[in-house]
Amino acid sequence: MKKTTGVLIASAITTALAMAPMTGVHAEGDKEKCYGIAKAGQNDCKAGPGTSCAGTSTVDGQGNAWMLVLKGSCEKIVGGSLSEKS
């Protein structure tokens, strides 16, 4: 590196400013459309599944219910040295 860091920064910032479109902040776009993804709220006052056994199953490693069967898109992810362990 011939240039000092200070010179490098000064030249980079000048370039960056020249490259950037002089539009100011990101346009927020159409007022009616720009509120973003509507992720569901979380707290509710409804009840859950009632008399199902969701809260009673033993999944603490001592009972039979803890059988972690992976059936998802992880099958599509391969390779890597760590996976050799499995």
Binding site: K39, A40, Q42, A54, G55, S57, V59, D60, A65, W66, M67, L68, V69, L70, K71, G72, S73, C74, I77
Partner: peptide, 21 residues
């Protein structure tokens, strides 16, 4: 809701077991 990709990767059943624990 927080972890849709994890859920997709391990599958619904495994995700529910993990979530319960």
């Amino acid at each position: 809701d927080m972890y849709p990709v994890i859920r997709q990767l391990v599958g619904e059943q495994a995700f529910r077991l993990l979530a319960t624990r």
